[in-house]
């Protein structure tokens, strides 16, 4: 006797979310530890050594100042990589058809993949944050905003992963997006510096980078108002727009079956 689903396939949805989360946790050495280790190295090498030359930015010790940016860097790259690589892998190994033949809607499939990637981004962000607090004694001024930024940014870049995963036909496509777009935008978004340290032209250009706002949003949330270059309102607005825009774009493509259903 078959099970017939009327409205929402909750069991299917939960199953796919669980599969996506279990998948990256089963290889935690590749998906959770590297970000924590590299961030610890950034804090120790960059933070502690450069602190002798740049003692503080916006009255925050340099080793602490860089931590919110490192957290965002990990959230963004992990959330993106998880969804993009999971989707491409499923296409290449033929696993996608196992899902497409089932009574899961395209929207349920898309949201499940986004949640999987967002979970990896969020876990990585929290881990780096905890390591940062442990190494530097960093405070946590606005925990609610911290949570909000971690959730919104991991969700929105998991959605970017969905978009790229749908369109990608090779691993090269996925790496191209990271190497040529995401990583430069993260570094130019002020992970290691304040944009006020830049010449006028570069400062103005940096303000067109959405990642600049989410890094500074988290910097405000973790370190308090004086540490950030942008206002919390603008940072929340940027994070909100990215979340909505990328989610709508990703789910729309998936819903249309673009490069998923022939």
């Amino acid at each position: 006797m078959t099970t017939v689903i009327q409205h929402i396939n909750w069991v299917g949805f939960r199953t796919l979310v669980a599969r996506e989360i279990t998948r990256f946790l089963s290889v935690y050495r590749q998906t959770v530890f590297p970000g924590v280790i590299s961030s610890s190295l950034y804090i120790i090498i960059f933070g502690f050594t450069l602190q002798r030359r740049i003692s503080s930015i916006n009255d925050v010790p340099y080793s602490i100042y860089i931590i919110p940016g490192l957290v965002m860097m990990n959230v963004i790259t992990n959330a993106y990589n998880n969804t993009a690589s999971s989707l491409l892998q499923m296409k290449l190994l033929g696993q996608m058809q196992d899902m497409l033949i089932t009574p899961l809607s395209n929207l349920e499939l898309a949201i499940s993949f986004i949640i999987g990637g967002a979970a990896r981004g969020f876990i990585n962000g929290v881990m780096v944050l905890l390591v940062g607090m442990f190494l530097t004694g960093m405070p946590l001024e606005h925990p609610f905003y911290v949570l909000l930024f971690l959730l919104m940014v991991s969700w929105s870049f998991s959605s970017v992963g969905l978009i790229i995963g749908i369109m990608a036909e090779s691993w090269d496509n996925i790496a191209t997006m990271v190497n040529f777009f995401i990583t430069p935008l993260i570094f130019l978004g002020g992970v290691f510096y304040s944009i006020n340290m830049l010449p006028e032209f570069w400062r103005t250009l940096s303000m067109a980078n959405p990642i600049y706002y989410v890094i500074n949003g988290l910097r405000y949330s973790v370190l308090g108002g004086g540490a950030a270059d942008s206002s919390i309102g603008l940072s929340l607005f940027a994070a909100g727009v990215m979340t909505i825009l990328f989610t709508v774009a990703g789910t729309y493509l998936f819903h249309r079956g673009y490069r998923i259903r022939q």
């Binding site: 299917g12 199953t15 796919l16 669980a18």
Partner: peptide, 18 residues
Amino acid sequence: DWFFTIEKLLYFQAGYYG
């Protein structure tokens, strides 16, 4: 599939069907 056992994959497949 690179990650899961065949038994687990059968449970996943059943799950997708609700």
